[in-house]
Each structure stands twice: as C-alpha cells, then as structure tokens.
Design a protein around this nucleic acid. Sequence first.
DNA 1: CCCCAGGTTGAATCTGCAG
DNA 2: TCTGCAGATTCAACCTGGG
Lengths: 382, 382
Amino acid sequence: MALTRSEERINAKKRPAAKAKAKAPALPLNTILRGDCIEAMRGLPDASVDMVFADPPYNLQLGGDLTRPEGSVVDAVDNDWDKFDTFRAYDEFTRAWLTEARRVLKPDGSLWVIGSYHNIFRVGAVLQDLGYWILNDIVWRKANPMPNFRGTRFTNAHETMIWASHGEKSKYTFNYRAMKTLNDELQMRSDWVLPICGGSERLKRNGKKAHPTQKPEALLYRVLLASTNKGDVVLDPFFGTGTTGAVARRLGRDWIGCERDETYIEVAEQRISDALPLDESALKTMQSPRSAPRVAFGTLVSTGYVAPGTVLHDRKRRWAATVQADGSLVCEGKQGSIHKIGATMQDAPSCNGWTFWHIDDPEKGMQPIDTQRQTYILATEP
Amino acid sequence: MALTRSEERINAKKRPAAKAKAKAPALPLNTILRGDCIEAMRGLPDASVDMVFADPPYNLQLGGDLTRPEGSVVDAVDNDWDKFDTFRAYDEFTRAWLTEARRVLKPDGSLWVIGSYHNIFRVGAVLQDLGYWILNDIVWRKANPMPNFRGTRFTNAHETMIWASHGEKSKYTFNYRAMKTLNDELQMRSDWVLPICGGSERLKRNGKKAHPTQKPEALLYRVLLASTNKGDVVLDPFFGTGTTGAVARRLGRDWIGCERDETYIEVAEQRISDALPLDESALKTMQSPRSAPRVAFGTLVSTGYVAPGTVLHDRKRRWAATVQADGSLVCEGKQGSIHKIGATMQDAPSCNGWTFWHIDDPEKGMQPIDTQRQTYILATEP
DNA sequence: CCCCAGGTTGAATCTGCAG
DNA sequence: TCTGCAGATTCAACCTGGG
C-alpha cells in the first residue's frame, strides 16, 4: 500500500535514528481517550506526537457571585475540575501532566499551553523546570472581553499562551511564510486580536453553553497552522468539547484527545464529525479586517504629544480648557473627557472633542487636537 | 488649611492603626540608594512605601552577580542540569528581593513587575508563593517592536507586567475614573499599546544608549496614575536610569531608587533634576464617585430638591412609587429606601435606587433621581 | 428584505463602611 | 470578626422581534 501524503511527511521529518515508531503500537489517531489525561497519556508511546495543545484548568479561585450593574448574575466557571486546594497541589498536577506530555512529544515537537494570570506563571515555571524551551509567549487579545463590572481593576482583556519546544535544541516546526501571509505580509506578532467564542460557533446543550470555556476555532487555526504540518499528530490532554480536534480535522492534521467528562465527549464527537475538511469558508474566518487604530486622548497626554497643563480652545475661543494629567479637561469648574466637556460647554447632547478643541500653535495658528492624533498614529504605526 | 478632595481620599483609605509611620525613621525620599537593592531595602522601615515598581534583570545568566544559594557562581549553561540550577538561582534571587519589597510595602500598597517570557513566569510564581495577590497581568503591546530577523519565531512584540497587592485583603489604590478618562471613557484594558522608548527620550551617553532596557515614560505614567495618589511614595529597586523617578517627580509622587551602577546613577540624577513637576492645576485627575460626598435621598427631600408626594417610576414605568416625607418610598403597599424598594420590586438582591427610579420631568422627560443628586452636590459644593 | 431597539452574554481571583 | 445595607458599576458581539 502506498504511503498517504501525511505519512510521507512524518517520515521526511524524522531524525536519522527514529526506529521507535516502527516498533511502537499504532497510535489511537482521531479518537478521544476517556479518563484522566495523565493515565491516558501513559498508554501512548514515547516521542509519538508532533504537537501538544493544552488548555488546563485555570484554578480561578472565584469568590461569591458577581452581578452586573443591571443586576443579573454572571454565569461563572464553578466546575469541580477547576478547584485545587493550594498552589502546591496545582503545581504537582501541572508537573505530572507536563512530564507525561513531554515524554510523548517527539524531540522536535512543540507544546502550547493557554492560561490566565491565575495559573500561567506556575505553568510557565514548571515547564521551564522540566526542560521545555520557551519559544514565545503569545497574547490573545480579546476583541470583546467581559468588562470589569465593579470598576476595581483593569478589564481582563487577554489570555496568555506559552509556546515551547521539547528542548533547547529542538528543530521545531514554524511555518513562517504561512504566518506572514496570514498577517498581510507582515511578520506575525506575539499578540493576536481575536474575538471570544460566541454566536453559532458556541456549542449549546439544552439551551445552555455546553462548556464554560470553549476556545475560538480561529485561535486553534492559527496555532495549528503555525506549528504543525499536514499529517502531523496533535495531542490535546484537556479536550473538552473538541475545538482542537475540529480544527485539526479541517486542516488535515491527525489528533488525539483526552477527556474525563462523558458529556463533553459526546458533544465533541458530534462536532468533529460535522467538521468539514478545509475549504474556502475556513480561510475566511481568519481574515481580520485591519481597522484603524483607536487612539485615546489620554495616550497623547501620557506619551507627551500633548502636555498636561496645555490650554485648549474651541475654534471661536469661547471657552478655554486645561489638559489634566489623566487626559481629562477642566473648563469653567467642570471636569471630563474632551468629548464630554465639549458637549457640556455647548449644552449639546454630544460633541466630537477631536475636532472641537484646538491647540494654539505659534506657527500654524489654531490646530484641532485631531492633528496631534494623526501625528501620533503616523509615528507609531508598525 | 482645608483638605483637598484627593487628600481626604488618601486619609479616608488609611487603616486605623497606622502608627508605624510616626515612629519610623524618616524615609530617604527622592534619593538613589547606592548598592545592591536587597541590602538597600533592608535599611527601610516596614510598611513604609505605597507602591513598588520593579524592572528586574531579565536574563537568567546574570554573570558574576548570579550565585547559587550556597555561594558558588553560576556560569554559562548548556545542559539541563545547569539550566535547572540557573533557574533555581534566579528564583532565589527573585524570592529575596520580592520578600524584602513586601516587607517595605504598606499592607494596602501594590507592586508592579515587568518582564518577558524569560523570567516573568518565575517572578509570577514566586510572587504568588510569597502571598502577593495578583490583580492583573498587563501586556505592554509595543507599537514598534524589533522584528524577528531570522524568521524563526513570532515577532516578540510585547512585555508583561504583573500588578499585585500586598495580600488578598489589601485595599489597594486603583484610580478607576482616571484610567477610564485616559482611555476615552472606556474601561482601561489589560493590554496597553505604547511605543518603545526612542527619540529624544532615549538617554545617550557618549553617543551610545545609556541603558539597554530603558522603559518609556508613558508606561510609568500610566502605572503611577493608576495605582498611586499624589504624595505617595514609590520604590524602584532596579532604578537604572531613573524612568520611575522622573515620572514620579512629574506627577507629584515621592520616589526612592536602588541602583548599583554608578554610571546609571549619574545619568538618572541628571535626568530627574531636569524633569519638571507638572503644575498643580494639571494634576487634578478624575475622582471616583466613591470619594465624592455621600448624599442621602432623605437630604434631597428635606431640602426641597424632591418634594414629598412625588411619584417615581422605573424607566419602563412598570412601577410607581411615592416619596415620603422621611425620604422613603411607598410602592405596592411596601415601604423602604429607594434601593430596597427598587430591589424588592424587581425581585433582585440589590438595586441602585439612584439610577433605577426616575422623575417625569415635563420638559426633559424621564430623569433618574441621580440627576437631582448631582444638582444638589453642585449647588452645595464649597 | 433591511434596520433599529432592546436584551443577553462572556475563564472574574470584582465593595466598603457602620454598627 | 461578622452582618447588614447603601450604593457604585459594563463593552462588544450576537440574537430576536417589530416596523
């Protein structure tokens, strides 16, 4: 029997003395292994998978309920699988699964882990201790994160992925050209702007979300495209509802998942069987429109483009407003944003502060502050 | 002398038994402490600084300065064992300075650390182990990063900051309104787009850059504005060329720096003496309503801003409530505060009556009673 | 058919003070 | 330390229903 293209690919990538595979038992390709991932991985041979993508429990340590300003309660992650007694317990769990994953990973393979500040620092440290070699940390900047309802912190608007090779000397796969093409012929950066998973992509069961933390396929799409080749084997120890499997199938990669929860498994199997191998529509999801960067007035102040203390006028010099350190304006005893103060002064419902307020330039005369914004954008554009 | 509103706020935040400060020796404000930061911090009293900003060495090979716990020097590494040894040494170093910083930090203070994937995971894990409570991880997304010349990885286009309070129960400072204003009336997110330090801001010495990792002032500007108040004391254990000091001076904060390198110290001292403090009038930042005087609804009734007998509605006119002479509401036979009745009607655990209940103004239509409160506050403000 | 208004929702370590 | 309660607090995307 002729080799499939994917088998050719694996052979081509093989190190000279990679006999293990010939002796090793066949891999359970494109199946979900039931049960605990550490146990499940023990059944896989050494150095048998090309890439690992892992979305482990984050150990969120949430307190009581969180309500939105309008009174409704946030549907938070309260699953047992996310609870650990101590950091030490979490570290031991992390060390155990990362150890097993590294054994199963080929020497030239790489691993991705996603997490938030609750767990990612622990994961990263353990991973370095075990000999993985960090290649990049990637920031997933959420286009539409949940706001901070209480106004107590910065909006938690991103998650972090660590991309690491098996070891320092690994000849890992990185499809540089594909990434550059995907990014309008600019090098792909370590920060990716992608929407969170919602809409028809969000899997439901009995009208409720099937999994509390389903990842967007666009994220996995980029991960798989960057660090695997067609025909490679991808292992996901925390398979959940199978985003990794669905994207792997679409992109012509083989996958192995581990999952304990029978409900998640059911949903994932259905989903993956519905996933069509790559067509044009799949590519479309990746074409993010490059919108103009939004620049806040405060950025101009904090970067020195407009000095605090500067006095702004409207075009007819009816009002004079002083720029504050935080980018707000003070005018006739009132304080607020450039838009708000502009509206208040004119007694109008709204106002575009960018064109309303002017700086009196000794050379060019009255210039709308929008000119400063344009200067800033030109100077900082990549 | 009357307290300004921001001073009131600082005092209001103080813990009851803040006697330590009175007894403690005077802090070496606005000076650079020469020598190793751990030694230098030992000379500072407990709980004496409001905020710590630290930009520790990133590289795990600290040259002759990185020693194993038992005192031997770690040299260049290329095998796993030495790597582990190096990580362990870096962890010890991190643990030492973070421990000392935590002692010096006030219980309601907070700490910022900036790093890259080389060190930030270790710093984050140690910091959690020591009892710091992470509030956010902040991604500084560089507008103009250095490209990845060899095309072997993603362009490393960001650095990570961790913002943590002294402990879980700390009443840390977060100037929510100022941050929201700085971001054009949207909540400030955990990802900040800022240019790297260059141009005239980049300090030179003999034509070469004075410090390899000088941070942009805009970054510190935002950090200080977010997490300190005017007059607070900021400690920077890795002072370098003094970005923290320069921005602190501009923003009316006191600072203390630690630095070993005499050349950096010279550059920093010159730089800070050149930094102009912002005019008092430009420093007034947006205050949270939290710090505004509290006005009871009963006050509005007793002062005639809302007449007893006035009928209030919710926005959709589902309920009608009558204002009583004592400032309570009566609605569907129930009586209570504006908040309580609002909550009862909606069958919600709580409700902000100020925004829930409206007065039907013949000219302006439905107006939340909060506008009456604002009118009262403006009219009665000193 | 489109458009707009209104409702819902997402990995969240989410209050502070008086008594 | 605990309880009770005043009152401060949200952004972008998607869905649904009515005009």
